Amino acid sequence: MTTSHSNPQDSMRSTWRRNQSQWTIYHKLLDSGNLHHIDLDREVPKFSKDTKVSYLADWQLNRFVLFYTVIPFAIHEVYWRLVGNNFGPLIAFFFYQQATKVMMTRALHSFKDLGHSIGFLDGDNHDRDGVPDVGVRKTFLTITAGGIMRAFATVYLCYSTNEPPSSLHWGFLIPEIGLYGLILDFWFYWYHRLMHVVHGLWRFHRTHHLTKHPNMLLAGYADIEQDFFDILGIPLMTFWTMRCIGLPMGFYEWFACQQFITFSEVSGHSGVRMYASAPGPLTWLWRLFDAELVIEDHDLHHRFGYRKSHNYGKQTRVWDRVFGTCIPRIECAKDNVDFNKKIKLALY
């Protein structure tokens, strides 16, 4: 659907998929992997807001992320044992960058199928925004840069050719993944909140809020200053915080942590109409305090938030609870969720 803005570059009009006459290499690359939130000419069901919402269990989400984390570790370990040498830094960079790309491509396709099956949030009022005609290049470059920059930072800071995946600090892995999400969300919460309330910072965040009904590809639809902090700044602050409190945060641990974070960042913009939390080993704990994050929480941040907003966290609602910036859910309120109507998240 079209959003009207005085600046043509602010338009969220998305017609390019049906008009190939003006396609560039960026349009072709996005289309080549079928990287779309819906398939054209395929029905998307619409439900009233009081229709019960389905439930996607935590273990399904955790299984998905762990599957696409353990598989590259296993391939890497087999190579080490068969060849007798480790990947060089350059090979490790390409290998793990591609491993994240595979996970996110599979996640996008899985969530797209779910959207066609169970619909999208606020679907009775508004369709999901597509990648805008004016933003195809920006979207593709952000997706590509995000994977490259995070993989480079992880390899540059942590990778050692003397350490195969079996050297991973297994005893620390589960608490590291849980704490990484909490600490990252603390830094992200304040960075995100300040971007909304400080006039001089809002201009770097407003582009991201042009979409009121985002899809997974629009998770990184933002100006370059925000992209830098989202992709590198906040993860680096979290990494050094973890190191400062005495956790090992080696290459493989950090890669695993980032797999969970990346999945949550993207799935949180999917808008699929279901009760699904951000994956992680501490979700059950946050839920005890009504502080777990579900897809609708960030969806409401986009739908109703502009300069003044709420639900600033993107991994949990812990800091939103602490600092009083949560708002009630609508379609995913507990009495509107059918926990017996369970969804399966396809692995492949």
Rank of each mutant, 00 (worst) to 15 (best):
H199A: 12
H199Y: 13
H199N: 12
G200W: 08
G200H: 03
G200R: 06
L201N: 03
L201M: 13
L201P: 02
W202K: 09
W202R: 04
W202E: 10
R203T: 11
R203H: 02
R203C: 03
R203K: 11
F204M: 03
F204W: 04
F204P: 01
H205K: 04
R206F: 04
R206E: 14
T207D: 15
T207R: 06
H208P: 06
H208Y: 02
H209K: 04
L210R: 07
L210E: 06
T211G: 01
T211W: 00
T211F: 01
K212M: 05
K212H: 09
H213P: 00
N215S: 07
L217W: 00
L218H: 00
Y221I: 01
Y221T: 00
Y221P: 00
D223E: 15
E225C: 00
Q226I: 06
Q226A: 07
D227L: 07
F228T: 02
F228C: 08
F229G: 00
F229R: 00
F229S: 02
D230M: 04
D230S: 06
L232F: 09
G233S: 04
L236T: 04
L236D: 03
M237D: 01
T238S: 12
T238A: 08
T238N: 05
F239Y: 15
F239W: 14
F239R: 04
W240R: 05
W240S: 11
T241M: 11
T241R: 04
T241P: 03
M242P: 05
R243K: 15
C244Y: 11
C244G: 08
I245T: 10
G246F: 13
G246P: 08
L247R: 12
L247C: 10
P248Q: 14
P248R: 14
P248G: 09
G250V: 07
G250N: 15
F251V: 12
F251R: 11
F251A: 10
F251K: 11
E253I: 03
F255I: 14
F255E: 14
A256S: 15
A256T: 15
A256G: 07
A256K: 03
A256Y: 07
C257E: 00
Q259Y: 02
Q259I: 01
Q259M: 15
F260C: 05
I261L: 11
T262Y: 00
T262R: 05
T262S: 13
F263A: 00
S264V: 04
E265G: 12
E265Q: 14
G268C: 06
H269R: 14
S270T: 13
R273G: 08
R273W: 14
R273I: 10
S277G: 01
A278Y: 00
P279R: 10
P279L: 11
P279M: 13
P279Q: 13
P279A: 12
G280F: 06
G280N: 11
L282R: 03
L282W: 15
W284I: 08
L285E: 10
L285W: 12
W286S: 09
R287T: 14
R287L: 11
R287A: 15
F289Q: 09
F289D: 10
F289A: 13
